[in-house]
């Protein structure tokens, strides 16, 4: 074997080992970079939150923890990819409810897997659904909004991110329970909703807190009338819950969790879970998440699994009741 061929062969082996990753030596996890899928485009609150967690996962796991954005398809592109990837702990998902409850969404045909096919690892935060109005609107609270809406039936407009979405479900349930008539208009993304709200084209926006809403709240351009959570949030301590105001929406917590493909080794899951726990307890992380509008919140795999299951069934039931799912 000439020198050159030797080096070529060595180089090929090197390339192969790169491709196969853990091809040669089997050490302790993790021994190469981990990638985590996010089902949204960069810049939103889920993506920003995942990036904060990723920074600290990197610190605890001593390996790069890369966020890969796979937006689209109602989160099914990222979900399907995670389902198809090798259950070795090197591909994970930083997911919201949409890709984790595939059979209970508006378009189950988009997903090639079921809820039980993904392994919950841990919850690291949760989204808050807020009901927002302009700061100078004639109403300052939910009660006043209802009074105003009753005096002007089918005049006020509220917006959401599209039929079948979580904020649509919560808004629709609230409007129904309050016995008021409001027009609803879908807007693609929180930025469009916010433009319409500030421009006076929309009167109430139901959306996840974070991203575009934070700067507007600070500047007193908008006011949060209520949140849909069961309990008040540390992120918006002054905002009442719908439950306090007498409306039982009943949506389970809007988790942001880490998920792995089913079949990932238990010790890998354990390690990831511990790292998430450490990260969510780190005051620095809590502070950074709060600035994005998220509250650090930890749940172990079992509790998260229960939550996912509850949410999926709740969503399915409501979508049927509201007549959007046959």
């Amino acid at each position: 074997m000439s020198h050159r061929t030797f080096w070529v062969v060595m180089f090929c082996c090197f390339l192969l080992s790169m491709v196969n990753g853990n091809g040669l030596a089997q050490g302790t996890y993790p021994e190469r970079p981990i990638q985590a899928l996010v089902s949204y485009a960069p810049g939103g609150s889920t993506d920003s939150g995942a990036r904060v967690i990723a920074e600290y996962m990197q610190k605890y796991l001593k390996q790069p923890f890369l966020i890969v954005n796979k937006p689209g398809g109602g989160s099914s592109i990222a979900g399907n990819e995670l389902f198809r990837s090798k259950p070795d702990g090197y591909t994970l998902g930083m997911f919201t409810s949409a890709p984790t409850t595939p059979e209970y969404t508006m378009n189950p045909q988009n997903f090639i897997y079921k809820t039980k096919d993904l392994q919950p690892v841990a919850e690291w935060s949760k989204n808050l659904t807020v009901f927002l109005s302009r700061y100078d609107a004639p109403w300052k609270s939910i009660e006043e909004l209802i009074k105003h809406a009753k005096a002007n039936p089918s005049k006020l407009v509220w917006s959401h991110a599209g039929r079948g979405n979580r904020d649509w479900i919560e808004g629709t349930l609230f409007v129904g329970q309050a016995g008021i008539k409001m027009l609803d208009v879908p807007f693609q993304g929180a930025a469009d909703s916010m433009t319409a709200l500030l421009g006076g084209n929309v009167d109430v926006v139901v959306t996840s807190y974070g991203g575009v809403t934070i700067g507007q709240m600070e500047a007193k351009k908008i006011r949060a009338l209520a949140i849909s959570d069961e309990k008040r949030s540390s992120v918006l301590p002054d905002v009442p819950t719908l439950k306090e105001l007498g409306y039982e929406i009943g949506t389970p917590e809007n988790y942001l969790g880490m998920f792995a493909p089913k079949g990932t080794p238990a010790e890998v899951l354990q390690k990831l879970n511990e790292a998430v726990l450490k990260a969510t307890q780190d005051p620095e992380v809590q502070q950074k998440l709060a600035k994005i509008g998220l509250a650090a919140s930890y749940k172990n795999a079992k509790d998260l699994e229960q939550l996912v299951d509850n949410f999926g069934k709740f969503q399915f039931k409501i979508l049927k009741e509201l007549g959007v799912l046959k």
Binding site: P42, G43, R51, G211, V212, I214, G215, E218, K221, K291
Partner: peptide, 22 residues
């Protein structure tokens, strides 16, 4: 308010640094 995807990323960069553009 980010008007397009690129501005969305910039918004994310602001947020991650703890500054909420508004």
């Amino acid at each position: 308010i980010p008007g397009n995807g690129v501005m969305g990323i910039l918004m994310g960069a602001f947020l991650i640094h703890g500054v909420a553009p508004g």
